[in-house]
Every structure is written in structure tokens, then in C-alpha cells.
Amino acid sequence: MRITVTVDGTKYSDDVEPRQLLVHYLRERLGKVGTVVGCDTSNCGACTVHLDGHSVKSCSVLAVQADGSEVTTIEGLARDGQLHPVQQAFHDNHALQCGFCTPGMIMQSIDLLADDPDPDETAVREGLEGNLCRCTGYQNIVRAVRDAAAKMSGGAGPEAERVGESQQVAGGGN
């Protein structure tokens, strides 16, 4: 089947097997190996990307289902060499160790901040319940998300992903 998908701002048109998972399309066809596969049952969340502005587990979406959609991966967050504030916060708060869960954690964190720009600790923990990390015990991840929230004013999600608007997002204040 022929699909057309915009991934990290670039439009791709490809023939794919209907059974191809979105995550495999991203990794194997587009070389977007920043998005990883951690399980078979959509429990771990490592493959989280944004599909039309909302977080999804790309192992549980078929590439054909993404036809006509916009996908943002971890590789599409930084703008002009500047990290997304959530990426920066993960670094600043030592919110990763091995880093395998990190792309999915960051993508889900951005989504959660889009829905709730000022989450308390419980809200962050619940917002990340679909993402597993085996290294950090989550404490610094929670801290990073709240730190990012404090530094972002314009919200996250689709806003933060729009090319050219990263300054506003990173800027703080209203």
C-alpha cells in the first residue's frame, strides 16, 4: 500500500506492507532509529511518538494507519541545535541512565505537559504510567518533567514541535 506520512517535518511517500508497524517503518524505512522497540505488548512505551499531536505507542499503530498524518519522533524535537526544554530537563535532572526508555519518556512527558502544563508529582507519575524505566526509579524523571513545566510557558505537544517556534517554547514567561 502506498502511504504518505510527514515525519519530523519531512514528507515521505512509500509502499508498505499493511502489517508493517509504524515503529518498524520509522526505524527501517526512514532510518529514525531514535525511536526504539522495547516490548511486544505496548506496556513499555519506549516506542512513543506523536501522531497528529498526540502520544501513541508506535508499536501498536500500523504504518498504513498513519497515512496522511504527521509524526514527530525524538529526532524531530531539537530546533537549530537547541534542545526541546523537556530534553534539556532530562539532562539537567539526571533523568536517564542507560537511556533506552528516554525517547519514549520524553515524548510522553511532552504530551502530558500539553494536557497539564503544571502537573503535581502524582499527575506526572500517572501521566507516565505507560512508560517503563528500569534504571532511574523514576524520581529524577518526575523531577525533570516538573522542572521542564516550570521553564515552559507556551505548553508542549504540537506547539513545541512546530518549526520556528522553539524560542517561544523555551523562553519562559508569558
Binding site: 531514535g34 525511536t35 526504539v36 539526571h94 537511556g99
Partner: peptide, 19 residues
């Protein structure tokens, strides 16, 4: 010290074997 390792890990520029 913040970690040197993080730069590639938070950007998806990793070299996992499966990559």
C-alpha cells in the same frame, strides 16, 4: 557533573546494537 553520555541519548542519536 551532568553526564556527558546524555547528549546522544536524549536526542535519539544512539547506537543500540539493533540500530
Amino acid at each position: 557533573r551532568l553526564r556527558k553520555e546524555d547528549a546522544r541519548l536524549i536526542a535519539g542519536r544512539t547506537r543500540w546494537t539493533d540500530n
